[in-house]
Amino acid sequence: MRNVTPLPVVAPQTKHAPMILTLLCSPAYQSESTKFFPRDDTKFPFPPPPAPLVRPIPLDKRPPRAICRPCRSQAPSSDRSGPVLERRSVEQVARGGGRAGGRGSRMYARRASQLLKELDACEPGQLVVFNSDVFDQVIRECGEHNAQFQALIRKMVEQNLDIETTRNEDHYGAAIHHLSLLRNKRCLMAYMYNRAETIRSFRWKIGPVLPHEIQEKLNFSEKEYFRSHSTAIKSYISEMDIDLTVDMVPPKDPYIQVRVLEDIGEVSLGDHSVSLTKNSLHFLRRTDAEQFISQGLMEEFLE
């Protein structure tokens, strides 16, 4: 294949050019990924120029760095059908290669952004069930992107092209796969990271044991994360010898009136013991009542 001098991109004419631009310029790409993982956009859309490789990496594992130097005024030559067009998008392949109509259906990494939309639609501080279906699909997409990317690089190597400098259609095809993979990764990471943030907040709001309704919204790793994180907080608290999980709101009065929501039984508080039966009203020290309130066994009684 000839090495064609790239034309400056002014008005992309091929059918697939809008797809490239959609992917790179889509506000979703920028807003969603920056929202969850703030990044320096000056480097966008391509990573910085290649630095010399420190150690040789087998060709099939070649990092994408080589094909991705900044090329602000250059884009695939637009007067011929490049492999980007022939190589249908992962979306299309996954759907049986049908012709994609709207621009949305052509966009790579759309599924990953669904995860973030789901996250965003949720009330702050609340969680929805871990979407393992979409999550696994995105992971698979990542693998496919990588396979395509490696294939394109291998093709260029087989043609004895210098992959550092060549700017042909394969280069841009590979760049798209590389960027799509990055976007997928950012979305997946943001999804997990922001969920983890909410999960951490449960430790402060609910306590070391999560109720069943929340447990079933977490995946295995998240449950483990909550447990380990609780242990870390617990060890800090015991090192400091001060309980940080009480006193979540500024105290107004040392005593509060509470209503017992569930039978608790005989409890000794300070110097006397109280029988806490369901629906009874008590006037307790705030510090004593707080632990029951956070467990949902009592509520503050406000007249």
Binding site: L182, K185, M192, E222, Y225, S228
Partner: peptide, 18 residues
Amino acid sequence: IMEKHLEQSVLSKLPYGY
């Protein structure tokens, strides 16, 4: 703990280099 969590839920499933 966070790194372990991300590692086992996302990163270990991504291709080399990512």
